[in-house]
Design a protein around this nucleic acid. Structure first.
Lengths: 102, 102
DNA sequence: TGGGGCTGTCATGGTTTCCTGACAGGGGGC
DNA sequence: GCCCCCTGTCAGGAAACCATGACAGCCCCA
């Protein structure tokens, strides 16, 4: 349901310099969170939030890997996608927008 | 300069139910502001703000038409566009992001 | 002179987003 | 014991965004 709402969510997830950088970094291969934070030079809690947004939008997947020694590392990786947008697509999407939930 | 920043601005402009509805309405043809506000059932100042965002992103153009009798009406119309986005495109765009303006 | 239509802008709240420092917990190696 | 690395969550404040009502200005028609 609500294809249009999904589009809005996807666009909102992409409309952020930080998140674009995150996706670009992940396009090169998967890493774990702390390493990614270091590479991008951003606060880890901040990165966390953005990763959650990206994951909620289905653009990223996370996997918590626990080594045999018990220490755990969370690997995160980008989900391939393709988006094509023009006025027609928007017109179609707008018809499936939820009026006003809640 | 800063192709990536433009992309972010474009995405941000599109990531809104209201603005998608506005674009959908304009895709059917140009109208003037008050009429559009009536058709979409939204506050005129609110519509104004959203139109400004869309115009700033280059998705819409406005033209203030002054009739021979002196009364003026602002016609607004959607600018055709096409956007194709995937991980590669994002990787490229991310490289042209402004670090931290201001 | 009043009423209606249109365009713009403003002051004002109310949310939401964004970002940071701090903390708790787990595990390792000196 | 101390130090370092990892994960996850929280409180709190700054900043941006949304949305509304009200106003001033201009025009027409009756």
């Amino acid at each position: 349901m609500s294809d249009g709402d999904d589009l809005v969510a996807l666009l909102a997830a992409l409309a952020s310099p930080h998140r674009l950088r995150i996706l670009a970094a992940l396009a090169a291969g998967r890493t774990y969170v702390s390493e990614l934070a270091r590479r991008l030079g951003m606060n880890r809690p901040l990165l966390y939030m953005h990763l959650q947004r990206l994951e909620a939008a289905g653009l990223v997947t996370g996997e918590l890997v626990t080594a045999p020694d018990g220490s755990s590392v969370k690997y995160v990786e980008a989900v391939p996608f393709a988006l094509a947008l023009d006025l027609d697509a928007i017109t179609r999407a707008a018809q499936t927008l939820t009026d006003k939930e809640r």
